[in-house]
């Protein structure tokens, strides 16, 4: 999967939750990805190294599983 595209998606989700504050936004982003992303997408973004991830998105990914 195209990691750049997945990163863009994750950042976009994080950006829309950002208004809730970093902590809650990271939790909400993680939950959203868990609920709506197919396993290969989750795996690919986590294997992608995290460059270009926004802080909230990065925090969210570290919470997955």
């Amino acid at each position: 999967m195209d990691v750049a595209h997945l990163t863009l998606m994750a950042n976009q989700i994080a950006r829309n939750f950002a208004v809730q504050g970093d902590e809650r936004a990271a939790a909400a982003t993680a939950e959203h990805i868990t609920l709506f992303w197919d396993p290969r997408m989750k795996a690919a973004i986590r294997a992608g190294g995290g460059a270009d991830l926004s802080p909230i998105a990065a925090a969210a990914l570290s919470r997955l599983d």
Binding site: M1, F36, W37, D38
Partner: peptide, 8 residues
């Protein structure tokens, strides 16, 4: 696990 959406 959820599956893929059309664009994905």
């Amino acid at each position: 696990e959820p599956g893929l959406r059309i664009p994905n």
